[in-house]
Structures are given as structure tokens and as C-alpha cells.
Design a protein around this nucleic acid. Sequence first.
DNA 1: CTTGTGTCCTGTAGGC
DNA 2: TGCCTACAGGACACAA
Length: 278
Amino acid sequence: MPELPEVETIRTELEPLLLGRRILSATASRMDIIGYPDPRRFRRGIAGARVAGLARRGKYLIVRLDTERELLFHLRLSGRLEVRGPSRPRRFERIRFELDNGRSLAFVEPRVLGRVYLTKTGDYPAALAGMLRMGPEPIQPGFTASYLAAKLARRRSVVKNLLLDQRVCCGVGNIYADEALARAGIRPTRMGGSLKQGEINRLARALRAVLKEGIRWCGTTLADERYLRPGRQAGSFQRRLRVHGREGSLCRMRGCTGVVERRRIGNRSSYYCPVCQR
DNA sequence: CTTGTGTCCTGTAGGC
DNA sequence: TGCCTACAGGACACAA
């Protein structure tokens, strides 16, 4: 599932394919994939725009256009972006953008939870309110241990859920939250407000490290292959996961003999080592 | 403001 | 073989 490292990988790999290209038209086979504005205004607004650059904010991929507008994608759980030559639509292709070089950008999204938005630059509608409330990028200098400490202080939710809250810090999803907590030696069920300063320091450092490492290895492609890069290659960070998806396996922390456990926290699976995460 | 729960959405895996 | 249910889970609406 695309989290910060996966979206960043997609941004890097898509940029050379899209930069300077003109978008001729958009064709949607599922209208509900368009989050804003209505499909008619969306199609009219995108036609003729040229791609000026690609950016990322949290889990959103932002295609900057030369028309003072932005095309934003949220891939949610199963979304994928591909640039392809002339071809029949792929299975689960929900919208396609024709480019001026004969190729097209396809948004493939089996579960139809992902969305694409067209907005004036920086002027986000209610459908994108999450963009305005979004917390700092964990891999930027603004994200510090003291910032995180302020966000966790007196909070009674479990720390795992607070890491998934995009207002606390953005881009973290289920996989990297589990991995950051594992590296920091913190159990996901700990109440946010109960973390000591030393633990928060370790957690901030672990978040930065694990997200950067995820980017370096081009993201995590689990066995069910939900996430693929634009050229359909898999990422390779799954080989370096310490706990996520490893229930019943030996903990990968150095010198630890614990066996990874799985528990449901806030209606999603969490993996942790009962020995080295306290 | 905070916290927990339900909902969206559809394909796939597993049980019988 | 085929039907049914549970599950996957990010974001948000909503209730308490």
C-alpha cells in the first residue's frame, strides 16, 4: 500500500516521463475516481495543460501544471500509476490521461478508493481538507523529537494510531508505523502520553530512518503485489522488514530471540516483537 | 478538542 | 465447483 516511500519512488520515476508533456485529454471509466471538481469541469480543466513538475505531500502525488493548477493523486490502498504506449485499458484502469507523445498516464485502482483531484495551485477544496491539516514531513528538518513530544503529550490513544494520524506527521501508514516502532523498541499499544523523552527521541529517529531507507529501496511490495512502481517493477524494502507481515517469525533485531506477534489495533493488523518492544 | 466506531470499495483467500 | 464470509486498510464522517 503506497505510503511515503512508495509515493516518493513513484514521483521520482514518473517525473522524467511526464515533465514538459502536454495532457491532451482525460477519459474516466469510473467517474467516482474523480474527487474534485465534477467530471465535466475536470476534463475541461485538464485539457491542454503542460506538466511543470512533480511533487509529493504526505501520501499525495502532486502534478504541477503550467496553468496555475495541480493534479493530485491519492493512491489509498491499491492505486497505481503507469505511463504506457497506445494500448487497451488495463484491468482496473479507472482514468487515463492522453499525452502529446502518443503515450498516456493510467490510474489503475482495483478498489476504487483512490482519487484524483484538479485544483488551483494551493487552493484546496473541502474534498482535500486533509492537505491543509497535514502535519510535517517526517524526513524534513521541521520534524524533531520535541515536535513529536508535543504531539504525543497527554494523548490517550495508542501510539500506533497516533503515528497513522496524518495531522501528527504525514506519510506514515501501517507498514512503516510498525517498522518505526520496532526499531525504537516501543510496543504499538503504548498510550501516546506515556512515552518517555528517550523513547520519543528514538521514535523520531526511527521514523526518519525507516522512511529514508524505504525510499532508498524503492518502497515495499508485499506478496499480494498491491504496490508496483510506474514501470511495474516491485520495490525491495519488504526484504528488510523487521516485523510487519512476519507473524510467527524470529524478530530481526540484533541479538533478539523473540517471535513476532500480530494484534489488531484500531481495526488493522499490527506486528511487533514482544521481547524487544516494551 | 479527543477518542472510538462505522463506512467506503472490490478482489481475493479460505471454509465448507 | 461454487457459494459465502472475512479481510485488506487510508481517510473521513459522526457520535459520545
